[in-house]
Design a protein around this nucleic acid. Structure first.
Lengths: 344, 344
DNA sequence: TTGTATGCGTTATCAA
DNA sequence: TTGATAACGCATACAA
């Protein structure tokens, strides 16, 4: 193993000079810096992480708490996780994976052992049990997702309320009057997942403003689930011409079933999805969709913890941030003007 | 911060006794152990990770290299990743996420800095550029996936060849003679992803044995992609009655298109998928599918690195393991006997 | 069965 | 602009 002493010897300087040359925390002459950097490269020196953490009081590691659930759309979770890792690297940080099955204790352990300088919580629920734990520890944290009470925390999330409103507006603009909102399985609403509730609230409010009638139907993402739900929607409100879908698993079956029931999209029925663009484009017809920038979520969460960490290092009080990212509507082939005559 | 000295004082013993009581590396009287454990709990002591790594020469961290690609089925990747994390915790290890965009350098950095005691590589390609790097470092590694040349390495993977053979056997048993194998996009075959090539090879060999005629068609997972592919299959081989699908995105469109073309599954055409069970069950009709135990992959990879790490700690030569997990066929509603009269 | 003392490799303070 | 040196908190070899 090559240590800082080896580099120092090779460069003909003292260990502390090597340390400063690498950290930049003290001015070093251009000449010595060059020699140090050369030796570092030649010897393939990498500072020992343990020693660095012990002496420097910073592990340069961020903990990322990922959900173990399968009822959320996993690819997005993965995308966020990797964007966190990439963003962290830009700050010289590595990312430690922590699963929810350890619960709050895992976070406590990482914080108390000094393994992680900060924590990023994904898939935060409105009333998340992990949040109180964060208060006890002096670990810095950022949440992806919006809790009931974000005081004392930094959070970033999509503006799901705005996303819901965008859907209502788009359908209203096209002249639709009877809308069905097909949501996630009822378990998600029972769990008070913020994104589901806020989307619905945003949609509901705007729908009211625009004079839309609508049904909200939670729905499992299975073929049978959608079949039953759609059947009931069409019998309860036969004049429904607009569908908002916030349930990745429901999209495919819904399109199939509409076709089967003799409805052509978008001529007879319009479908607008709340889902990533790559999914929207995978279907036929390609779906008009409302999307938020998933990668930004990770990047911003990292910025937030990093800024909190450096504030607390300077002995300052970290400032709480709340960032909501504006979603965008992309019009594709699945939405169109309301039909003149309804089918039934 | 509460240190081992604090615990020692509280328990009325020396720091080393605390250390031994916790690590179990030296016999400690039941009485002292009790007192130590009590103090640990009362004070909320967690050993400082940096100090532990520095003194003990083991970081208790495993690096997990996850792919950034989107052309692989992400939920499985996530499932494996979490199973790695869970299994690692059982050994007192944490998992560090490392993305592929850092490439081999990232692995080198983690190994050289002593941040990770071992590495698990996911989504290994037949000719993976990260593998040579592993040789240089004395880091222990386990691969999830099977490279061209697994010498000097421990690997675990599904037995994709057996999976392919299972598909051929099942369709042959049902009397089918003309089969289409709908695979991943051609990019994956160009990349020499082992799982794709091995599945195909296993299928091909068994198909030959059983006297099946078949076409292999790489295919993007989009509706248009499948539509084109299916059209060509049916015009080239109108008597095709069996479909093997190894492409998660293709399943939904394929079923829709078969229905559209007037073919009922399984009466007119049988479909067997290589995909996770939860996906297979999501479709209508529920799909006969061949699946491997994804979680086992992570668990076994962890066992493999752990055993290599402890071998090398004992100064022994780690033994190379190659574990292939046997896939299982679950018959559902999408396969049946070949129709007496073909459609065309 | 337990205690003492040393060293791990780095950062940061103090001196020059 | 640089060098010497003292922590940092723990594991472990050595003593008792």
């Amino acid at each position: 193993m090559v240590t800082i002493a080896d580099v120092a010897k090779a460069a003909g300087v003292s260990p502390s000079t090597v340390s400063y040359a690498l950290s930049g925390k003290r001015r070093v002459s251009a000449e010595t810096r060059r020699r140090v950097e050369r030796s570092v490269l030649e010897l393939g020196y990498h500072p020992n992480a343990g020693a660095r953490a012990l002496a420097g009081k910073r592990s340069h590691i961020l903990a990322l708490a990922v959900p173990l659930r399968t009822d959320v759309y996993v690819p997005i979770m993965m995308e966020i996780a990797t964007s966190v890792a990439v963003a962290a690297r830009k700050h010289g940080y590595d990312v430690l994976l922590i699963t929810n099955d350890e619960g709050p204790d895992g976070i406590r352990r990482l914080a108390a052992s000094g393994l992680a300088d900060g924590v990023i919580l994904m898939d935060v629920e409105l009333d998340d049990k992990r949040i109180p734990t964060l208060g006890d520890l002096r670990t810095q944290a950022a949440l992806i997702g919006l809790p009931d009470d974000p005081r004392g925390l930094s959070c970033v999330d999509h503006d799901f309320s705005a996303a819901g409103a965008l859907c209502a507006d788009h359908l209203a603009d096209l002249g639709h009057r009877d809308i069905a909102f097909i949501g996630y399985g009822s378990g998600i609403y029972r769990r008070h997942a913020g994104y589901a509730e806020r989307t619905l609230a945003g949609f509901r409010a705007r729908a009211k403003e625009r004079g839309l009638r609508f049904l909200h139907r939670p729905c499992e993402g299975t073929y049978e689930g959608i079949a039953g739900t759609l059947g009931r929607i069409l019998s309860d409100r036969p004049h429904t011409t607009g569908f908002v879908v916030q349930n990745e698993g429901a999209i495919g079956p819904l399109l199939s079933l509409l076709r089967t029931s003799g409805r052509t999209v978008p001529e007879d029925a319009s479908v607008i999805a709340l889902c990533p663009d790559h999914l929207a484009e995978q279907h036929a017809p390609a779906l008009t969709a409302v999307t938020g920038p998933a990668k930004e979520l990770g990047r911003i969460a990292v910025e937030q913890v990093m800024s909190r960490i450096s504030a607390s290092t300077r002995g300052e009080q970290p400032t709480d941030e709340l960032v909501l990212l504006t979603p965008t509507l992309t019009v594709r082939e699945s939405t169109g003007p309301v039909p003149e005559h309804s089918l039934i």
